[in-house]
Nucleic acid binder design. Structure first.
Lengths: 263, 263
DNA sequence: ACGGGTATGTTCGATATCGCACAATAGGCG
DNA sequence: CGCCTATTGTGCGATATCGAACATACCCGT
Protein backbone atom coordinates (compact mmCIF):
# COMPACT_ATOMS: atom_id res chain seq x y z
CA UNK A 1 0.00 0.00 0.00
CA UNK A 2 1.12 3.50 -0.70
CA UNK A 3 1.32 5.94 2.15
CA UNK A 4 -0.79 8.89 1.21
CA UNK A 5 -0.16 11.17 4.15
CA UNK A 6 2.77 12.07 6.27
CA UNK A 7 2.28 10.36 9.60
CA UNK A 8 1.93 13.18 12.16
CA UNK A 9 3.96 11.52 14.88
CA UNK A 10 5.62 13.14 17.85
CA UNK A 11 9.35 13.11 17.32
CA UNK A 12 11.19 10.68 19.52
CA UNK A 13 8.20 8.43 19.38
CA UNK A 14 8.64 4.81 18.60
CA UNK A 15 7.20 5.08 15.15
CA UNK A 16 8.17 7.55 12.50
CA UNK A 17 11.55 7.42 10.90
CA UNK A 18 13.91 10.06 12.21
CA UNK A 19 15.59 10.69 8.89
CA UNK A 20 12.37 11.18 7.02
CA UNK A 21 11.03 13.27 9.87
CA UNK A 22 13.98 15.61 9.69
CA UNK A 23 13.21 16.49 6.09
CA UNK A 24 11.36 19.65 5.30
CA UNK A 25 7.79 19.14 4.26
CA UNK A 26 8.55 20.22 0.74
CA UNK A 27 11.31 17.67 0.44
CA UNK A 28 9.28 14.98 2.04
CA UNK A 29 6.49 15.59 -0.42
CA UNK A 30 8.89 15.01 -3.28
CA UNK A 31 9.91 11.67 -1.83
CA UNK A 32 6.47 10.65 -0.71
CA UNK A 33 5.25 9.17 -3.99
CA UNK A 34 8.30 6.93 -4.03
CA UNK A 35 7.76 5.58 -0.55
CA UNK A 36 5.80 2.46 0.23
CA UNK A 37 4.83 1.40 3.69
CA UNK A 38 5.68 -2.26 4.24
CA UNK A 39 5.42 -4.59 7.18
CA UNK A 40 8.49 -6.49 8.25
CA UNK A 41 8.15 -9.65 10.27
CA UNK A 42 10.57 -11.00 12.78
CA UNK A 43 13.19 -13.19 11.20
CA UNK A 44 12.59 -11.80 7.74
CA UNK A 45 15.75 -11.63 5.67
CA UNK A 46 15.82 -8.36 3.82
CA UNK A 47 19.15 -8.83 2.11
CA UNK A 48 21.39 -11.81 1.85
CA UNK A 49 25.12 -11.24 1.68
CA UNK A 50 26.42 -10.28 -1.76
CA UNK A 51 22.92 -9.91 -3.04
CA UNK A 52 21.89 -7.05 -5.24
CA UNK A 53 19.83 -4.54 -3.30
CA UNK A 54 16.56 -3.46 -4.81
CA UNK A 55 15.10 -1.36 -2.03
CA UNK A 56 16.20 0.66 0.93
CA UNK A 57 14.11 0.80 4.10
CA UNK A 58 13.44 3.56 6.60
CA UNK A 59 12.23 1.67 9.68
CA UNK A 60 9.17 2.93 11.50
CA UNK A 61 8.95 0.58 14.41
CA UNK A 62 10.81 -2.26 12.76
CA UNK A 63 14.38 -3.01 13.78
CA UNK A 64 16.86 -4.63 11.45
CA UNK A 65 20.25 -6.16 12.19
CA UNK A 66 23.24 -6.28 9.93
CA UNK A 67 24.78 -9.70 10.38
CA UNK A 68 28.12 -10.97 9.20
CA UNK A 69 28.59 -14.68 8.56
CA UNK A 70 32.02 -16.25 8.40
CA UNK A 71 33.19 -19.28 6.48
CA UNK A 72 33.18 -21.23 9.70
CA UNK A 73 29.51 -20.51 10.06
CA UNK A 74 30.08 -18.14 12.94
CA UNK A 75 27.98 -15.00 12.96
CA UNK A 76 28.01 -11.55 14.54
CA UNK A 77 25.70 -8.63 14.51
CA UNK A 78 27.76 -5.71 13.33
CA UNK A 79 25.04 -3.11 13.54
CA UNK A 80 21.41 -2.45 14.32
CA UNK A 81 19.13 -0.16 12.42
CA UNK A 82 15.95 1.27 13.83
CA UNK A 83 13.97 4.46 13.43
CA UNK A 84 17.11 6.53 13.51
CA UNK A 85 18.46 5.06 10.30
CA UNK A 86 18.12 3.44 6.93
CA UNK A 87 18.61 -0.15 5.87
CA UNK A 88 20.69 -0.35 2.74
CA UNK A 89 23.26 2.30 3.43
CA UNK A 90 25.50 0.66 0.86
CA UNK A 91 23.25 1.89 -1.89
CA UNK A 92 23.71 5.38 -0.68
CA UNK A 93 27.44 4.82 -0.61
CA UNK A 94 27.51 3.84 -4.24
CA UNK A 95 27.50 0.08 -4.15
CA UNK A 96 24.65 -2.13 -5.31
CA UNK A 97 25.44 -5.08 -3.10
CA UNK A 98 25.92 -5.56 0.60
CA UNK A 99 28.55 -7.78 2.19
CA UNK A 100 26.25 -8.36 5.17
CA UNK A 101 22.94 -10.01 5.73
CA UNK A 102 20.06 -7.83 6.91
CA UNK A 103 17.57 -9.56 9.14
CA UNK A 104 14.54 -8.24 10.99
CA UNK A 105 14.96 -8.36 14.76
CA UNK A 106 11.76 -6.65 15.77
CA UNK A 107 8.68 -6.75 13.59
CA UNK A 108 7.23 -3.45 12.55
CA UNK A 109 6.74 -1.11 9.66
CA UNK A 110 9.20 0.52 7.35
CA UNK A 111 9.03 2.92 4.46
CA UNK A 112 10.47 1.27 1.40
CA UNK A 113 12.03 3.00 -1.55
CA UNK A 114 13.48 1.69 -4.77
CA UNK A 115 17.25 1.95 -4.97
CA UNK A 116 16.94 3.74 -8.28
CA UNK A 117 14.69 6.36 -6.71
CA UNK A 118 17.13 6.90 -3.89
CA UNK A 119 20.07 7.25 -6.22
CA UNK A 120 18.09 9.69 -8.26
CA UNK A 121 17.19 11.74 -5.25
CA UNK A 122 20.83 12.02 -4.29
CA UNK A 123 21.87 13.64 -7.55
CA UNK A 124 21.68 17.09 -6.06
CA UNK A 125 23.32 17.65 -2.68
CA UNK A 126 19.98 17.16 -1.03
CA UNK A 127 19.23 17.41 2.68
CA UNK A 128 18.51 13.71 2.54
CA UNK A 129 22.08 13.21 1.53
CA UNK A 130 23.34 15.26 4.45
CA UNK A 131 21.20 13.24 6.80
CA UNK A 132 22.42 9.98 5.37
CA UNK A 133 26.02 11.09 5.52
CA UNK A 134 25.63 12.00 9.14
CA UNK A 135 23.91 8.71 9.81
CA UNK A 136 26.72 6.84 8.08
CA UNK A 137 29.15 8.57 10.36
CA UNK A 138 27.29 7.35 13.42
CA UNK A 139 27.05 3.84 12.03
CA UNK A 140 30.75 3.81 11.27
CA UNK A 141 31.57 4.97 14.77
CA UNK A 142 29.35 2.37 16.36
CA UNK A 143 30.73 -0.45 14.25
CA UNK A 144 34.25 0.65 15.05
CA UNK A 145 33.40 0.52 18.70
CA UNK A 146 32.01 -2.98 18.19
CA UNK A 147 35.41 -4.14 17.03
CA UNK A 148 36.91 -3.04 20.31
CA UNK A 149 33.94 -4.29 22.29
CA UNK A 150 33.89 -7.81 20.92
CA UNK A 151 37.62 -8.00 21.39
CA UNK A 152 37.88 -6.77 24.95
CA UNK A 153 34.59 -7.11 26.77
CA UNK A 154 33.14 -10.12 28.50
CA UNK A 155 29.85 -11.67 27.54
CA UNK A 156 27.72 -10.32 30.39
CA UNK A 157 28.75 -6.70 29.90
CA UNK A 158 28.03 -7.11 26.22
CA UNK A 159 24.69 -8.78 26.79
CA UNK A 160 23.45 -6.01 29.07
CA UNK A 161 23.70 -3.17 26.55
CA UNK A 162 22.34 -5.40 23.84
CA UNK A 163 19.23 -6.07 25.90
CA UNK A 164 18.82 -2.43 26.81
CA UNK A 165 19.18 -1.38 23.21
CA UNK A 166 16.58 -3.86 22.05
CA UNK A 167 14.22 -2.83 24.80
CA UNK A 168 14.70 0.81 23.81
CA UNK A 169 13.68 -0.11 20.31
CA UNK A 170 10.82 -2.33 21.23
CA UNK A 171 7.40 -0.81 21.47
CA UNK A 172 6.17 -3.34 23.99
CA UNK A 173 9.01 -3.32 26.46
CA UNK A 174 9.36 -7.04 25.93
CA UNK A 175 12.30 -8.43 24.04
CA UNK A 176 11.28 -11.39 21.93
CA UNK A 177 14.42 -13.35 21.28
CA UNK A 178 15.66 -16.77 22.18
CA UNK A 179 19.00 -16.98 23.92
CA UNK A 180 20.30 -18.94 20.97
CA UNK A 181 19.48 -16.06 18.70
CA UNK A 182 21.07 -13.54 21.02
CA UNK A 183 24.18 -15.69 21.11
CA UNK A 184 24.36 -15.61 17.34
CA UNK A 185 24.18 -11.83 17.45
CA UNK A 186 26.87 -11.49 20.06
CA UNK A 187 28.96 -14.06 18.27
CA UNK A 188 29.18 -16.38 21.25
CA UNK A 189 27.76 -19.71 22.39
CA UNK A 190 24.23 -20.05 23.56
CA UNK A 191 25.43 -21.38 26.91
CA UNK A 192 27.40 -18.24 27.50
CA UNK A 193 24.26 -16.17 27.09
CA UNK A 194 22.30 -18.51 29.34
CA UNK A 195 24.89 -18.13 32.05
CA UNK A 196 24.86 -14.35 31.87
CA UNK A 197 21.08 -14.26 31.70
CA UNK A 198 20.79 -16.46 34.75
CA UNK A 199 23.08 -14.16 36.65
CA UNK A 200 21.05 -11.11 35.68
CA UNK A 201 17.86 -12.88 36.60
CA UNK A 202 19.23 -13.97 39.97
CA UNK A 203 20.06 -10.34 40.67
CA UNK A 204 16.54 -9.33 39.80
CA UNK A 205 17.60 -7.29 36.80
CA UNK A 206 15.66 -9.22 34.19
CA UNK A 207 13.16 -12.02 33.95
CA UNK A 208 12.55 -14.23 31.01
CA UNK A 209 10.98 -17.34 29.69
CA UNK A 210 11.07 -19.02 26.33
CA UNK A 211 12.09 -16.15 24.17
CA UNK A 212 10.45 -13.34 26.04
CA UNK A 213 12.67 -11.13 28.12
CA UNK A 214 11.61 -8.33 30.46
CA UNK A 215 13.90 -5.82 32.01
CA UNK A 216 12.93 -5.41 35.66
CA UNK A 217 15.63 -3.07 36.86
CA UNK A 218 16.72 -0.61 34.29
CA UNK A 219 19.33 1.23 36.27
CA UNK A 220 20.73 -1.99 37.65
CA UNK A 221 21.21 -3.47 34.22
CA UNK A 222 22.81 -0.27 33.00
CA UNK A 223 25.44 -0.68 35.69
CA UNK A 224 26.34 -4.03 34.14
CA UNK A 225 26.93 -2.63 30.67
CA UNK A 226 30.28 -2.01 29.15
CA UNK A 227 31.08 1.53 28.13
CA UNK A 228 29.77 0.83 24.66
CA UNK A 229 26.15 1.35 25.62
CA UNK A 230 26.68 5.00 26.39
CA UNK A 231 28.76 5.36 23.27
CA UNK A 232 26.09 3.96 21.01
CA UNK A 233 23.38 6.14 22.50
CA UNK A 234 25.56 9.17 22.13
CA UNK A 235 26.34 8.46 18.50
CA UNK A 236 22.79 7.89 17.38
CA UNK A 237 21.49 10.65 19.59
CA UNK A 238 23.53 13.11 17.60
CA UNK A 239 22.44 12.10 14.14
CA UNK A 240 19.39 14.27 13.83
CA UNK A 241 20.44 16.87 16.36
CA UNK A 242 23.55 17.72 14.41
CA UNK A 243 22.08 17.98 11.00
CA UNK A 244 19.70 20.94 11.28
CA UNK A 245 22.75 23.11 11.72
CA UNK A 246 23.64 22.06 8.24
CA UNK A 247 20.15 22.71 6.99
CA UNK A 248 20.56 26.12 8.57
CA UNK A 249 17.72 28.36 7.49
CA UNK A 250 15.39 25.42 7.25
CA UNK A 251 13.61 26.48 10.43
CA UNK A 252 11.04 23.87 11.07
CA UNK A 253 13.58 21.12 11.26
CA UNK A 254 15.14 22.75 14.29
CA UNK A 255 11.87 22.58 16.17
CA UNK A 256 11.74 18.84 15.79
CA UNK A 257 15.35 18.51 16.79
CA UNK A 258 14.97 19.95 20.25
CA UNK A 259 12.57 17.28 21.30
CA UNK A 260 14.50 14.23 20.27
CA UNK A 261 14.99 11.66 23.03
CA UNK A 262 14.38 12.68 26.59
CA UNK A 263 16.80 9.85 27.45
CA UNK B 1 55.46 23.19 0.88
CA UNK B 2 52.78 23.47 -1.71
CA UNK B 3 52.61 20.87 -4.45
CA UNK B 4 52.78 22.73 -7.69
CA UNK B 5 52.39 19.91 -10.14
CA UNK B 6 50.38 16.76 -10.33
CA UNK B 7 52.75 13.90 -9.67
CA UNK B 8 52.80 11.87 -12.90
CA UNK B 9 52.84 8.50 -11.20
CA UNK B 10 51.88 5.20 -12.73
CA UNK B 11 48.56 4.19 -11.22
CA UNK B 12 48.81 1.32 -8.80
CA UNK B 13 52.23 2.49 -7.82
CA UNK B 14 53.13 2.83 -4.20
CA UNK B 15 52.98 6.58 -4.24
CA UNK B 16 50.17 8.68 -5.56
CA UNK B 17 46.83 8.68 -3.87
CA UNK B 18 44.25 6.60 -5.65
CA UNK B 19 41.36 8.91 -4.93
CA UNK B 20 43.15 11.98 -6.18
CA UNK B 21 44.41 10.03 -9.17
CA UNK B 22 40.90 9.04 -10.14
CA UNK B 23 39.83 12.62 -10.51
CA UNK B 24 39.66 14.26 -13.87
CA UNK B 25 42.50 16.62 -14.57
CA UNK B 26 40.18 19.58 -14.51
CA UNK B 27 38.86 18.63 -11.12
CA UNK B 28 42.26 17.92 -9.77
CA UNK B 29 43.41 21.33 -10.86
CA UNK B 30 40.64 22.92 -8.86
CA UNK B 31 41.74 21.08 -5.73
CA UNK B 32 45.43 21.47 -6.31
CA UNK B 33 45.88 24.90 -4.73
CA UNK B 34 44.26 23.60 -1.58
CA UNK B 35 46.56 20.60 -1.26
CA UNK B 36 49.77 20.60 0.69
CA UNK B 37 52.28 17.82 0.64
CA UNK B 38 53.34 16.85 4.12
CA UNK B 39 55.60 14.20 5.57
CA UNK B 40 54.23 11.91 8.22
CA UNK B 41 56.57 10.11 10.56
CA UNK B 42 56.03 6.77 12.19
CA UNK B 43 54.17 7.05 15.46
CA UNK B 44 52.83 10.50 14.66
CA UNK B 45 49.37 11.06 16.08
CA UNK B 46 47.28 12.82 13.48
CA UNK B 47 44.07 12.97 15.47
CA UNK B 48 43.36 12.17 19.05
CA UNK B 49 39.95 10.79 19.95
CA UNK B 50 37.22 13.41 20.24
CA UNK B 51 39.49 16.03 18.86
CA UNK B 52 38.36 18.57 16.33
CA UNK B 53 39.73 17.73 12.91
CA UNK B 54 41.48 20.52 11.03
CA UNK B 55 42.83 18.65 8.03
CA UNK B 56 42.15 15.57 6.01
CA UNK B 57 44.99 13.56 4.48
CA UNK B 58 45.32 11.66 1.24
CA UNK B 59 48.23 9.31 1.87
CA UNK B 60 50.92 8.96 -0.75
CA UNK B 61 53.14 6.34 0.72
CA UNK B 62 52.19 6.97 4.33
CA UNK B 63 49.90 4.53 6.11
CA UNK B 64 47.66 5.56 8.95
CA UNK B 65 45.75 3.42 11.44
CA UNK B 66 42.48 4.24 13.09
CA UNK B 67 42.79 3.07 16.66
CA UNK B 68 40.11 2.72 19.29
CA UNK B 69 41.00 3.00 22.97
CA UNK B 70 38.73 1.66 25.66
CA UNK B 71 38.29 2.83 29.23
CA UNK B 72 40.29 -0.17 30.37
CA UNK B 73 43.20 1.05 28.29
CA UNK B 74 42.79 -1.75 25.77
CA UNK B 75 43.26 -0.78 22.15
CA UNK B 76 42.38 -2.10 18.71
CA UNK B 77 43.10 -1.01 15.23
CA UNK B 78 39.72 -0.72 13.55
CA UNK B 79 40.99 0.29 10.14
CA UNK B 80 44.02 1.13 8.06
CA UNK B 81 44.26 3.89 5.51
CA UNK B 82 46.81 3.97 2.76
CA UNK B 83 46.99 5.27 -0.78
CA UNK B 84 43.55 3.94 -1.51
CA UNK B 85 41.85 6.26 0.95
CA UNK B 86 41.59 9.40 2.97
CA UNK B 87 42.29 10.06 6.63
CA UNK B 88 39.48 12.02 8.21
CA UNK B 89 36.51 10.42 6.60
CA UNK B 90 34.37 11.77 9.42
CA UNK B 91 34.73 15.25 8.04
CA UNK B 92 33.34 14.05 4.79
CA UNK B 93 30.49 12.44 6.66
CA UNK B 94 29.52 15.67 8.29
CA UNK B 95 31.12 15.46 11.69
CA UNK B 96 33.98 17.63 12.87
CA UNK B 97 35.37 15.20 15.40
CA UNK B 98 36.52 11.61 15.27
CA UNK B 99 35.86 9.01 17.94
CA UNK B 100 39.10 7.23 17.03
CA UNK B 101 42.74 8.08 17.21
CA UNK B 102 44.67 8.25 13.94
CA UNK B 103 48.29 7.21 14.16
CA UNK B 104 50.92 6.84 11.47
CA UNK B 105 52.00 3.23 10.99
CA UNK B 106 54.34 3.70 8.06
CA UNK B 107 56.14 6.95 7.44
CA UNK B 108 55.56 8.60 4.12
CA UNK B 109 53.95 11.51 2.39
CA UNK B 110 50.38 12.64 2.26
CA UNK B 111 48.46 15.41 0.62
CA UNK B 112 46.83 17.53 3.25
CA UNK B 113 43.74 19.65 2.86
CA UNK B 114 41.88 21.92 5.24
CA UNK B 115 38.57 20.55 6.42
CA UNK B 116 36.87 23.74 5.36
CA UNK B 117 38.21 23.34 1.85
CA UNK B 118 37.00 19.77 1.68
CA UNK B 119 33.55 20.68 2.91
CA UNK B 120 33.43 23.44 0.40
CA UNK B 121 34.41 21.14 -2.42
CA UNK B 122 31.62 18.78 -1.50
CA UNK B 123 28.92 21.39 -1.91
CA UNK B 124 28.15 20.27 -5.43
CA UNK B 125 27.79 16.55 -6.04
CA UNK B 126 31.38 16.36 -7.15
CA UNK B 127 33.23 13.30 -8.43
CA UNK B 128 35.35 13.59 -5.32
CA UNK B 129 32.22 13.01 -3.33
CA UNK B 130 31.39 9.91 -5.32
CA UNK B 131 34.85 8.56 -4.77
CA UNK B 132 34.71 9.26 -1.08
CA UNK B 133 31.30 7.67 -0.78
CA UNK B 134 32.57 4.59 -2.47
CA UNK B 135 35.61 4.55 -0.26
CA UNK B 136 33.44 4.91 2.82
CA UNK B 137 31.52 1.87 1.67
CA UNK B 138 34.70 -0.16 1.49
CA UNK B 139 35.85 1.08 4.87
CA UNK B 140 32.51 0.24 6.40
CA UNK B 141 32.63 -3.25 4.94
CA UNK B 142 36.15 -3.87 6.18
CA UNK B 143 35.40 -2.60 9.67
CA UNK B 144 32.30 -4.77 9.79
CA UNK B 145 34.41 -7.74 8.89
CA UNK B 146 36.82 -6.81 11.66
CA UNK B 147 34.05 -7.19 14.18
CA UNK B 148 33.54 -10.77 13.06
CA UNK B 149 37.25 -11.38 12.74
CA UNK B 150 38.25 -10.22 16.19
CA UNK B 151 35.38 -12.18 17.63
CA UNK B 152 35.96 -15.51 15.92
CA UNK B 153 39.51 -15.82 14.64
CA UNK B 154 42.59 -16.88 16.53
CA UNK B 155 45.63 -14.70 16.92
CA UNK B 156 47.90 -16.38 14.38
CA UNK B 157 45.34 -16.25 11.52
CA UNK B 158 44.79 -12.61 12.36
CA UNK B 159 48.46 -11.80 12.55
CA UNK B 160 49.19 -13.26 9.14
CA UNK B 161 46.88 -10.98 7.13
CA UNK B 162 47.96 -8.03 9.20
CA UNK B 163 51.57 -8.62 8.27
CA UNK B 164 50.75 -9.16 4.63
CA UNK B 165 48.70 -6.00 4.52
CA UNK B 166 51.46 -3.95 6.06
CA UNK B 167 54.00 -5.44 3.72
CA UNK B 168 51.73 -4.61 0.76
CA UNK B 169 51.67 -1.02 1.92
CA UNK B 170 55.32 -0.76 2.72
CA UNK B 171 57.64 0.47 0.03
CA UNK B 172 60.62 -1.38 1.40
CA UNK B 173 59.18 -4.80 1.94
CA UNK B 174 60.23 -4.60 5.57
CA UNK B 175 57.69 -4.13 8.28
CA UNK B 176 59.00 -1.89 11.02
CA UNK B 177 56.93 -2.67 14.08
CA UNK B 178 57.64 -4.15 17.47
CA UNK B 179 55.56 -7.10 18.53
CA UNK B 180 54.20 -5.02 21.37
CA UNK B 181 52.88 -2.51 18.89
CA UNK B 182 51.37 -5.20 16.72
CA UNK B 183 49.68 -6.64 19.79
CA UNK B 184 48.11 -3.28 20.53
CA UNK B 185 46.76 -3.19 16.97
CA UNK B 186 45.32 -6.67 17.14
CA UNK B 187 43.98 -5.98 20.60
CA UNK B 188 45.83 -8.88 22.22
CA UNK B 189 48.80 -9.43 24.49
CA UNK B 190 52.32 -9.03 23.29
CA UNK B 191 53.11 -12.61 24.28
CA UNK B 192 50.39 -13.88 22.02
CA UNK B 193 51.98 -12.13 19.08
CA UNK B 194 55.41 -13.45 20.06
CA UNK B 195 54.07 -16.97 20.11
CA UNK B 196 52.47 -16.67 16.70
CA UNK B 197 55.53 -14.95 15.27
CA UNK B 198 57.79 -17.68 16.58
CA UNK B 199 55.62 -20.27 14.92
CA UNK B 200 55.70 -18.46 11.59
CA UNK B 201 59.43 -18.04 11.87
CA UNK B 202 59.97 -21.69 12.69
CA UNK B 203 58.05 -22.55 9.56
CA UNK B 204 60.24 -20.26 7.51
CA UNK B 205 57.43 -17.90 6.63
CA UNK B 206 58.89 -14.79 8.20
CA UNK B 207 62.04 -13.65 9.89
CA UNK B 208 62.41 -10.79 12.29
CA UNK B 209 64.53 -9.07 14.82
CA UNK B 210 63.91 -6.15 17.06
CA UNK B 211 61.10 -4.46 15.27
CA UNK B 212 61.98 -5.37 11.71
CA UNK B 213 59.97 -8.09 10.06
CA UNK B 214 60.55 -9.69 6.66
CA UNK B 215 58.15 -11.96 4.90
CA UNK B 216 60.12 -14.86 3.46
CA UNK B 217 57.34 -17.00 2.07
CA UNK B 218 54.48 -15.02 0.75
CA UNK B 219 52.26 -17.86 -0.38
CA UNK B 220 52.92 -19.80 2.77
CA UNK B 221 51.89 -16.94 4.98
CA UNK B 222 48.78 -16.39 2.91
CA UNK B 223 47.74 -19.92 3.70
CA UNK B 224 47.81 -19.01 7.38
CA UNK B 225 45.48 -16.06 7.02
CA UNK B 226 41.86 -16.03 7.96
CA UNK B 227 39.36 -15.32 5.23
CA UNK B 228 39.48 -11.63 6.08
CA UNK B 229 42.63 -10.99 4.10
CA UNK B 230 40.95 -11.80 0.81
CA UNK B 231 37.92 -9.82 1.86
CA UNK B 232 39.90 -6.69 2.60
CA UNK B 233 41.80 -6.83 -0.66
CA UNK B 234 38.57 -7.31 -2.55
CA UNK B 235 36.89 -4.36 -0.90
CA UNK B 236 39.67 -1.88 -1.47
CA UNK B 237 40.39 -3.23 -4.91
CA UNK B 238 36.92 -2.21 -6.00
CA UNK B 239 36.96 1.35 -4.77
CA UNK B 240 38.39 3.02 -7.81
CA UNK B 241 37.34 0.43 -10.32
CA UNK B 242 33.67 0.83 -9.47
CA UNK B 243 33.41 4.56 -9.47
CA UNK B 244 33.84 5.57 -13.11
CA UNK B 245 30.61 3.77 -13.89
CA UNK B 246 28.95 6.24 -11.60
CA UNK B 247 30.70 9.14 -13.24
CA UNK B 248 29.08 7.83 -16.37
CA UNK B 249 28.83 10.63 -18.89
CA UNK B 250 31.96 12.22 -17.55
CA UNK B 251 33.91 10.30 -20.16
CA UNK B 252 37.60 10.74 -19.58
CA UNK B 253 37.42 9.17 -16.16
CA UNK B 254 36.79 5.83 -17.75
CA UNK B 255 40.17 5.95 -19.44
CA UNK B 256 42.00 6.20 -16.19
CA UNK B 257 39.87 3.47 -14.76
CA UNK B 258 41.21 0.84 -17.09
CA UNK B 259 44.70 1.29 -15.80
CA UNK B 260 44.03 1.06 -12.12
CA UNK B 261 45.64 -1.81 -10.26
CA UNK B 262 47.26 -4.58 -12.14
CA UNK B 263 46.86 -6.42 -8.83
C1' DA C 1 -4.52 -34.43 28.38
C1' DC C 2 -0.85 -35.70 25.50
C1' DG C 3 3.10 -35.47 22.56
C1' DG C 4 6.59 -33.08 20.09
C1' DG C 5 9.47 -29.49 19.41
C1' DT C 6 11.76 -25.54 21.10
C1' DA C 7 13.95 -23.15 24.74
C1' DT C 8 16.64 -23.26 28.74
C1' DG C 9 19.64 -25.34 32.54
C1' DT C 10 23.77 -28.00 33.72
C1' DT C 11 27.95 -30.36 33.52
C1' DC C 12 32.70 -31.24 32.13
C1' DG C 13 36.94 -31.53 29.81
C1' DA C 14 39.60 -28.91 26.30
C1' DT C 15 41.62 -24.76 24.67
C1' DA C 16 42.97 -20.01 23.87
C1' DT C 17 43.98 -16.25 25.91
C1' DC C 18 45.22 -13.56 29.87
C1' DG C 19 48.24 -11.51 33.50
C1' DC C 20 52.29 -11.50 35.47
C1' DA C 21 57.04 -12.23 36.37
C1' DC C 22 61.41 -12.70 34.84
C1' DA C 23 65.29 -14.19 31.73
C1' DA C 24 67.81 -13.41 27.57
C1' DT C 25 69.34 -10.76 23.79
C1' DA C 26 70.26 -7.23 20.57
C1' DG C 27 71.36 -2.46 19.33
C1' DG C 28 72.39 2.25 20.25
C1' DC C 29 75.33 5.39 22.41
C1' DG C 30 78.87 7.34 25.09
C1' DC D 1 84.09 -1.74 25.07
C1' DG D 2 80.36 -1.78 28.26
C1' DC D 3 76.15 0.10 29.87
C1' DC D 4 71.28 0.95 29.07
C1' DT D 5 67.05 0.26 27.13
C1' DA D 6 63.85 -1.73 24.00
C1' DT D 7 62.65 -5.97 22.31
C1' DT D 8 61.87 -10.69 22.44
C1' DG D 9 61.57 -15.43 24.76
C1' DT D 10 59.59 -18.39 28.35
C1' DG D 11 57.02 -20.31 32.05
C1' DC D 12 52.91 -20.80 34.84
C1' DG D 13 48.61 -20.40 37.19
C1' DA D 14 44.07 -18.17 36.47
C1' DT D 15 40.12 -17.38 33.70
C1' DA D 16 36.79 -17.03 29.98
C1' DT D 17 35.14 -19.19 26.48
C1' DC D 18 34.44 -23.25 23.73
C1' DG D 19 32.29 -27.66 22.27
C1' DA D 20 29.53 -31.18 23.09
C1' DA D 21 26.33 -33.94 25.45
C1' DC D 22 22.45 -34.39 28.05
C1' DA D 23 18.53 -33.09 31.33
C1' DT D 24 14.65 -30.35 32.16
C1' DA D 25 10.90 -27.31 31.39
C1' DC D 26 7.60 -24.93 28.81
C1' DC D 27 4.38 -23.95 25.00
C1' DC D 28 1.51 -25.24 21.21
C1' DG D 29 -1.37 -27.86 18.51
C1' DT D 30 -4.04 -31.98 18.20
Amino acid sequence: MKSTQRPPLPSGSLSGNDILSALLNSEYRRLEPKLDMVELWRGQVIYKADQRIRHVYFPQGAVVAMVDTLDSGGTVEVGVIGNEGMVGINIFLGCMVTPDKAIVQIAGNAMRMKTSDLRNELRFGSPLQRLLLRYTQALLAVISQSVACSQHHLIAPRLAPWLLTMRDYSRSGTIEMSQAHIAAMLGTRREGVTEAALKFQAEGLISYSRGKIFILNDAGLKKKTCECYRFIKKQFGGVIKDVPKVLGVAGQAVVRAGKVKAH
